[in-house]
Design a protein around this nucleic acid. Structure first.
Length: 424
RNA sequence: GGAGGGUUGGCAGAGUGGUAAUGCAGCGGCUUGCUAAGCCGUGACGGGCUUAACCCCGUCCACAGGUUCAAAUCCUGUACCCUCCGCCA
């Protein structure tokens, strides 16, 4: 959420942000500003009436009994007037609050302007693309042959996009998650196991609602997290930290649930786009200084790059354009990892910073050493997500005989060096 | 699932219709030859108000309604916490 005073003072910037982020029609900033003006107008009337009411009530308490009747009559008139105005105020406030939730963050100056993913800019490329002296298979074919991925039975049990990982596949998943989790702890991050079923207020707080509400599974009056970011970033919601507590660095492994609405034809094959997967997520809360946020943004990217490099996977980093940056985000990098079967880099990580957009919605503040109270800045980034990264590993590490070599870094965690075809 | 008790500032804790006590902690100031002690001041949000300070007004006793001239206090609903019973990995 942006500060209404910031919106008023930077109306043109915010209007441009709505346009650049392809959010035309979701919120009208001009209408919002006028709405707030009339809200303030009514607020002044209400406060003046409340002041009158309080004054008269005090008089009633002090007045001798015989004078009370007249005063109460006077107060009743004020009260009736007040009730009417308060109702009007309440209506304006509900409308205003609703509309404020739809105001996006303003992209950083160095975010390229673009309509959609075609406007993203390659920021860097790392690693050598693998060369095969045989025809490489895709991860599903490899996974089926090795009996480590079973999508047929996955679909039987869970429906479209259902899957089982099996044998070395199931173990490899745990190895990857634990590898990334341990790595982040060494970077000073506090490990957490988080709630997966969460109150809607925190989806709104992190900016997933209202925009992405459709993509979430609802259970009773709550929803399933699409990322641990929701729980991690909300951890200190409603609290005031001390400057000494910052930066807060959190890491969690959690399941992620996504309805993937509107993607029915896309990535239907294999374990790439799923309704359910695991992810190790990093979240940072830092002081309210964009330079500090930007340094963390780069640093968190480097943590994720390190893990991908440890796995020796070729990747590229994209600087996302305005049309592909989330409504709440100020700037975003995606890491895309190489998928030989698609001859493409595909998204495996997403690194964003928000300034105080989330912390205003979540009401997370800190006290500076000077005694000032400010909203913290928030950031988050993927460390690793499975099984998508498993798909990348088995495609990049496949051998002519259909076996898969395990990246060296992971062998300590898997306990095996290779996944070999089973005798059937 | 059943029964009962509770939720007041950073913490502790009084207040049962008429200006939210008090103690502790933290922070700032004053005083004092040190350690220390004493005294004073200290919340959040919004508005008046375009800017700093000041001042004034409003709101905030879990949340949302209601009754009343006036609600922390009375009524209704909800959330959460605690205790006991039942069930349970």
């Amino acid at each position: 959420m942006l500060d209404i005073n910031f919106i008023k003072e930077n109306k043109d910037k915010v209007i441009k942000a709505v346009k650049d982020k392809q959010l035309d029609g979701t919120v009208d900033i001009e209408v919002l500003v006028r709405l707030h003006d009339s809200y303030l107008e009514v607020l002044r009337e209400v406060e003046s009436l409340r002041s009158q009411r309080n004054t008269i009530s005090e008089k009633v308490a002090k007045a001798p009994k015989e004078e009370r009747g007249g005063l109460i009559g006077e107060a009743t008139k004020v009260k009736e007037n007040l009730q009417e105005k308060e109702k009007e105020l309440g209506n304006l406030q509900v409308k205003f609050d609703e509309m404020m939730l739809w105001v996006p963050n303003v992209p950083a100056d160095d975010v390229p302007i673009g309509k959609d993913e075609t406007g993203n800019v390659v920021y860097k490329k790392e690693g050598k693309l693998p060369k095969f002296n045989f025809t490489p298979k895709d991860h599903l074919e490899l996974g089926k042959d090795l009996d480590i991925i079973d999508t047929d039975r996955g679909v039987k049990i869970a429906g479209f996009r259902g899957y089982f990982l099996k044998n070395e596949g199931a173990i490899l998943e745990q190895a990857i998650l634990r590898y990334a989790f341990d790595f982040m702890q060494r970077q000073g991050f506090t490990p957490l196991s988080v709630p997966w079923i969460v109150n809607p207020a925190f989806f709104t707080g992190t900016g997933y609602f209202p925009w992405g509400e459709e993509d979430h599974y609802k259970v009773d009056d709550k929803a399933l997290i699409g990322t641990a970011e929701v729980s991690l970033t909300s951890y200190y919601a409603g609290e005031t930290l001390n400057e000494d507590d910052l930066p807060v660095r959190l890491v969690a492994i959690s399941p992620c649930f996504r309805r993937e609405v509107g993607t029915y034809g896309q990535d239907a094959k294999g374990v790439f786009r799923l309704h359910q997967f695991y992810k190790v997520e990093q979240v940072v809360l830092c002081e309210a200084d964009e330079d500090v946020s930007r340094r963390w943004h780069e640093k968190m990217l480097s943590f994720s790059e390190k893990v991908v490099r440890d796995f020796k996977l070729p990747y590229q980093v994209l600087l996302m354009c305005t049309g592909d940056v989330g409504a709440g985000q100020r700037k975003k990098y995606d890491i895309e990892t190489w998928f030989p079967s698609q001859q493409k880099y595909r998204e495996t990580h997403s690194d964003s910073y928000f300034l105080d957009f989330q912390s205003r919605r979540l009401n997370i503040k800190y006290k500076t050493k000077e005694g000032e109270t400010k909203f913290v800045h928030t950031l988050n980034n993927t460390v690793i997500a499975t099984p998508r990264i498993i798909a990348a590993i088995i495609e990049n590490y496949q051998n002519a005989d259909g076996s898969i070599t395990i990246p060296k870094a992971l062998r300590k965690y898997t306990g095996f060096n290779k996944i070999k075809p089973k005798n059937r």
